[in-house]
Each structure stands twice: as C-alpha cells, then as structure tokens.
Design a protein around this nucleic acid. Structure first.
Ligand SMILES: [Mn+2]
Ligand SMILES: [Mn+2]
Ligand SMILES: [Zn+2]
Ligand SMILES: [Zn+2]
Lengths: 147, 147
DNA sequence: TTGATATTGATAATGAGTTTCATTCGCTGT
DNA sequence: ACAGCGAATGAAACTCATTATCAATATCAA
C-alpha cells in the first residue's frame, strides 16, 4: 500500500514516457523534495525549499511539475479555501480527509469509512458516476480553544 | 424556515446598522438581484447581471457587498475549486451540500443527516470545536454519461 | 553524434479579488 | 431645507496565484 522513493520515481518515469514526456534533473529534484515534505505544501513553498538545492530552478517549472505529479497520481491537490493549492503525496497513504483549525492552520487527517460509504450512496441515488470528493471540516483545535 | 425578500432586506438593514454601516441604493439593488438568482453565481457573473439594471455600478462594490451579505448570514460562499467563489442564498433553505458534474457543471443539492452527524463525531473525537464544513462530491451526471 | 522536439527559466500576461483615494451620498441634528 | 461628517462609491492601481510565451537548452531515439 505504501511506496518508497524508488517506486514513485518509476511511477513518474512510466507516466512521463506514456505521455511522450521526458524525465529531467529538475523533475527528479522536485519529486524527491516533494516526497520528503512532512506537511501539505503549496507550489510556492516548495519552490522556496527547492531554491536551496538548486538556485537556478524556475518558478514555472515547479508549478508545471506539480501538475504533472497530480496527473500521474503521485500528488493530490488540497483546497482549504486559502487562495492557493496545497499538495500532499497521494500514493504514500490511504485516502483521507482533513480537519483544519481556522485559527492556526493545524490539521488532522482522518478517514471515516461510514462517511465514505454514505457519499457513494448519495452519488448513486442521483445517477451520478463518482469521480472525486472533497470533505474539509473546519474547527478550532484544542490548543487554540484555550488561547 | 424560509424568508421572503422583505425579511431579508430587514435582516440586512439591521446587520448594517449594528455595524454602523448604511443601506444604499447599490446595496439594495445587489441584494435584490442576488436573491432573484436561481443558480449559484460568482461575484463577476452577478456584476454582469447588475450592469443591465445600473450600468454605473462598480466592480468593487459588488465584491464588497457580497462579503457583507456573507457576514450578515444572507449569502453563503461555495468553493468548487474553479478558482472563483460562488454564492448562494443562505437563509432561504436548510443547509445542504453539493454534487457537481465535472463535465457540465450542473449540480444537485443534497442533505444527508447521517453524514452531518458523522462529521460532528469526527470533530469531537479530536477535541475540535466545529466552525464550518465543506463537502463537495464530484461526478458525471446522467446526461453527460451518455454524451 | 545528430536531430527532432520536449523542457527550461525569465518574463509577461491573466484573472480573481482587494486597496486606494477623490468624489458623492446618507443620516442626523439644526 | 441645510450643513456637516463619516460611510460608500467607482475608477484605477495593485496583489497574489497561476499560466502563457518564447528563445535558449537539454533529452533521447536513431
Ligand atoms: Mn493529508
Ligand atoms: Mn446550493
Ligand atoms: Zn489551532
Ligand atoms: Zn453533466
């Protein structure tokens, strides 16, 4: 269920060759750096981190590559309504949704099988074919409730 | 449970006076026009509609007013990941979530009490205090499945 | 090694939304 | 009706995330 870096690298390579695209040193670096992140990062945040390893890397290349990683099923886009997209690895763990603190941004990943199943029930009730879903719960974390 | 236009107007008036703000002809027109909409509109779409009634109305006024209506509890912001915010009346019906067709944008409003309750269970499990939630299901509608 | 073509990074452009600011408006008291 | 003051407006400039353009460069199959 969980992939190591090598697996992910070959998943990406394969995706690229299927699309007649090429593996490059920039794409390798971005993939490696992205996978190392512990938190959900925006493209801009990742760009700042990448500049330390390669100061010549381009802004647009990071955006372009994150889009490719998403298409390849390696990254998942998260929209917490902040105005920018965050990314998380999509292959390293099971699907999950997010519980986000509106004060400090801290967030918890959860998976509720019952909710997942009920979502499927809603979708089929209306004859839709499920493609994706986005469930974000917004609240105040225990720490921020005190402060 | 449901409000008519007059109710909503007085809700807005009251909110404005509480905040030491003023009712204006622009705000009245925007409120009236917004409430007439059958679909979820973006501020930009509403601006285009409003220009027909008042060609002098300003872009910024529409954005500013939609924000006020949201604060007043009259409008609700929806984020379907399209890059812009849509608005729907928040007082005219019960809370609901959305099932959106990724092909044509058609969307269905649904309310699943079981899902709502399970969400509360998740939030309290982690000691958070629920503020809001956003559940969007993305799929392909029956019509688009054929095409 | 070569050549076709994909990729890159600098830069300009886009699009949603916000800020600024001089002018106008709404409201309260006269 | 009138004055005065702060709030509101519209035009235009601005911000911020993201995308498009394009000349120079890198990749890879032959
Ligand atoms: Mn996550
Ligand atoms: Mn709705
Ligand atoms: Zn917090
Ligand atoms: Zn459809």
């Amino acid at each position: 269920m969980s992939h190591n870096t090598k697996d992910i690298h070959s998943i990406f390579s394969q995706y690229l060759s299927e699309q007649n695209l090429r593996m490059t040193t920039q794409r390798e670096l971005i993939l490696k750096t992205f996978c190392k992140q512990k938190k959900h990062v925006t493209a801009e945040q990742l760009y700042e981190i990448l500049k330390k390893a390669d100061p010549t890397i381009g802004h647009a290349t990071v955006y372009r590559t994150m889009k490719l990683l998403t298409e390849a099923g390696i990254a998942r886009e998260l929209n917490f309504g902040e105005g920018s997209i965050r990314y998380e690895p999509d292959t390293s763990k099971e699907h999950h949704d997010h519980l986000v603190c509106v004060k400090c941004g801290e967030n918890i990943e959860f998976l509720d099988e019952e909710i997942e199943n009920l979502q499927k029930r809603v979708v089929s009730k209306y004859g839709y074919q499920l493609v994706d879903h986005s469930l974000n719960l917004y609240g105040i974390c225990p720490k921020c409730q005190k402060g």
